[in-house]
Amino acid sequence: MNIFRLTGDLSHLAAIIILLLKIWKSRSCAGISGKSQILFAIVFTARYLDLLTSFISVYNTSMKVIYIGCAYATVYLIYAKFRATYDGNHDSFRVEFLVVPVGGLAVLINHTFSPLEILWTFSIYLESVAILPQLFMISKTGEAETITTHYLFCLGMYRTLYLFNWVWRFYFEGFFDMIAIVAGLVQTVLYCDFFYLYVTKVLKGKKLSLPA
């Protein structure tokens, strides 16, 4: 464990909690892509099946359980409890265009051709693009609530910090996972445009709205 991985995990946790609290406190999931949240629930489920097969540490297990639990809680709030506030018309990204190619890629390019390893690879690839329905929704409506931008910033920072973690681990541990690194780079690049808007607008107290 190094500082980049720890802060990355905490940033990820913060993102998940911010989103849950935002929906819970406002009793509304307006502006939130339910499709992205379903994709994240799939990502965690596919990746953390190893909860059943291997034990790493108490930290590792508890974080996995919290991530999975929060992901399903978020999906429940959007599609059941506060369904009336869900903005389905603007959440029109076609997720099959992500899931099908990513599934094919996971079968073709993986470390080992075994079910659990392919599911892990699938989750890594899928996570890298799972935010696209949310970003698509914001580009469609042209704006996002400030709390939603904090969520996106924390979520984007998490994988960015993991990139530093992988550089660290490469130098100090000889650890190198090509699949995670390439997917992590793709994931971070997808946030670059948003990071720019976050720094130039939201941090200066303005609401994030896109030019028409």
Binding site: H12, S54, E117
Partner: peptide, 10 residues
């Protein structure tokens, strides 16, 4: 089926 090696990252 062979199990994948444990991965310590989240």
């Amino acid at each position: 089926f062979p199990l994948r090696p444990p991965k310590d990252e989240l």
